[in-house]
Design a protein around this nucleic acid. Structure first.
Lengths: 150, 150
DNA sequence: CCATATGGTTAGCTAGGCTAACGAAACGCC
DNA sequence: GGCGTTTCGTTAGCCTAGCTAACCATATGG
């Protein structure tokens, strides 16, 4: 493969930057009252709308038994509600409770606040570059495979 | 909260893009013969040079018992070697074996290949934006680490 | 020389991932 | 209508990866 093409160097730097950013954010999540997997699943229900367990598992790219356990914990904590599917008696429909929405909003604010504080001090041009890069990335990811997550 | 300054909107998009990129890469790592934490620790030794266990733990931002177990597994698999520290009898120096380097190179090639294939099709200008954004991010993360403010 | 700090390990807990196996319901097709 | 197959969700059991607490051995500074 073209060992040091512009594309491969960019890929390398992008990869590294994304890893380091998320690693930093992980330390912020320590204060969250639920773990990252539960938070992420809850986030899908809040921002992406209610859906069944297997749909949620697919969105989160985990196996259904994994999601079953996550949802069980979220329900125990009163963050998610399940109601029967109108036509399919095997299935359930999951939706966030008011408590779940509030908790998610707090966690999200913490994360975003952390990113914001890092960006503080950048000039308009640098912010523009970061914003544009994010858009390019999202577009490329969508194109590479229709994801539909979050 | 919920104000929408340019900074906060950029933070939001950046956050989302990084999550989606790494989620995609996670599916590539399924083929890796060792888990992500071990792979990452090995990567530090290969690209960042040999160091002690506690230094490696600090680099990876995990507690020393966690790193102790990771290193134990890497050593069992013949991917990492430990030798005594020249002056400090409590400490050890960790370095990757040839096997470790080869394994890491394969895993890294898979990941980067995946990112590269996503970037294929972008024009020079878009690549430039992504590369520049990565540099800004890395710089900001480095800066933010040194000052433990806020 | 002793108190304290540091490097690493062990034990034990939690969260989050997986597969295999299962029951119940839905679907498809005679 | 019945029967095989697929799908939805759960349970059981295993693995990785994170943590703290407690510990031993060695360094280091008064």
């Amino acid at each position: 493969m073209a060992r040091s093409s512009p594309t491969s160097r960019t890929a390398d730097r992008l990869h590294s930057a994304a890893i380091h950013l998320l690693r930093r954010l992980r330390t912020v999540d320590v204060e969250a009252e639920v773990g990252p997997a539960r938070l992420s699943a809850l986030s899908v229900l809040v921002f992406g709308g209610e859906r069944s367990l297997s749909e949620l598992a697919a969105t989160e790219q985990v196996a259904t038994p994994t999601m079953s356990r996550l949802v069980g914990a979220l329900e125990t904590d009163g963050l998610v509600r399940r109601r029967p599917h109108p036509t399919d008696k095997r299935a359930m429909i999951l939706s966030p409770t008011a408590k779940g929405r509030r908790l998610l909003e707090r966690a999200r604010a913490r994360r975003l606040g952390s990113v914001e504080s890092m960006l503080r001090g950048l000039d308009r041009e640098e912010l523009r570059v970061l914003g544009e890069a994010s858009e390019i990335l999202e577009r490329v990811l969508r194109a590479d495979r229709s994801d539909a997550s979050r």
